[in-house]
């Protein structure tokens, strides 16, 4: 990586306080993927409000080590409703775990930006699940972790809408008797593949399937944000 970078589109995935008034930012940048930068005195600065997750930033930094030093920041704020930040944190945590460091991920960056814009413009609750599932698929696809949902893994036969399948990370899709609770309808799988989340049945199946694939790729780590928001929403 070159020594100095300017005007790099970026989003903050995570911020943590460092020493008295500084911050360490975990960033998703357009050309360098995931990187970490140190912002000295960030919490005292006039532009402290920029250093928040969910804003479109243009950043500059220097330094050769894994932790860069921030040199420039411009911000185009996004107004994401507070209630929707559970989605932002969830997606950010996924990216923190799954994105490789300092590797360009342009397409995924654009999808992420698109997701935040959708959240900022979001009105009612209904389509959020579809938006999230769609982004999860983008993420897994870009990282080469998304299985093909149109074909059985071993037999290489096309998935058929009227049949039923089980899914396992090691054996992939396999035909099974219908009525199996852990299974998926062929029609659901094909809808998911085409991202047609029109019915609650497809959305439910998609959630179950994506959860399976994501959990496998998290390699035993638990998503803190998922746990926390479940806990917060459960309280009487």
């Amino acid at each position: 990586m070159q020594n100095r970078v300017n005007d790099q589109p970026a989003f903050i995935l995570h911020r943590r306080d460092f020493q008295e008034s500084s911050l360490i930012l975990e960033l998703f940048t357009i050309d360098f993927g995931r990187i970490s930068v140190l912002v000295k005195g960030a919490r005292k600065r006039r532009d402290a409000a920029y250093f928040q997750t969910g804003h479109r930033l243009q950043l500059g930094w220097g330094g050769r080590s894994a932790l860069k030093i921030l040199t420039q920041i411009d911000c185009r704020p996004l107004q994401i409703p507070l209630k929707l930040y559970s989605c932002v944190f969830y997606v950010n945590e996924l990216l923190l775990y799954l994105l490789p460091r300092e590797q360009e991920q342009r397409d995924l960056f654009h999808r992420y930006q698109h997701l935040l814009l959708e959240l900022a413009q979001h009105q009612a609750d209904d389509s959020l699940e579809a938006v999230l599932r769609s982004f999860e698929m983008d993420l897994l696809q870009q990282l080469g972790l998304m299985p093909d949902l149109t074909m059985e893994h071993y037999s290489e036969q096309s998935v058929q809408a009227v049949l039923h399948y089980t899914f396992d990370m090691l054996t992939g899709l396999r035909r099974c008797e219908d009525g199996s609770e852990a299974g998926f309808g062929g029609g659901e799988l094909l809808s998911i593949q085409q991202r047609r989340f029109d019915t609650t049945a497809v959305l439910k199946a998609a959630k179950r399937l994506m959860r399976k694939i994501i959990d496998y790729n998290l390699q035993g780590r638990t998503l803190q944000s998922r746990k926390l928001f479940q806990q917060l929403n459960k309280k009487p």
């Binding site: 995570h14 559970s86 945590e93 803190q224 944000s225 926390l228 917060l232 309280k235």
Partner: peptide, 8 residues
């Protein structure tokens, strides 16, 4: 702090 697991 959701990602740090700091909850209620």
């Amino acid at each position: 702090s959701p990602i740090d697991g700091i909850g209620p």
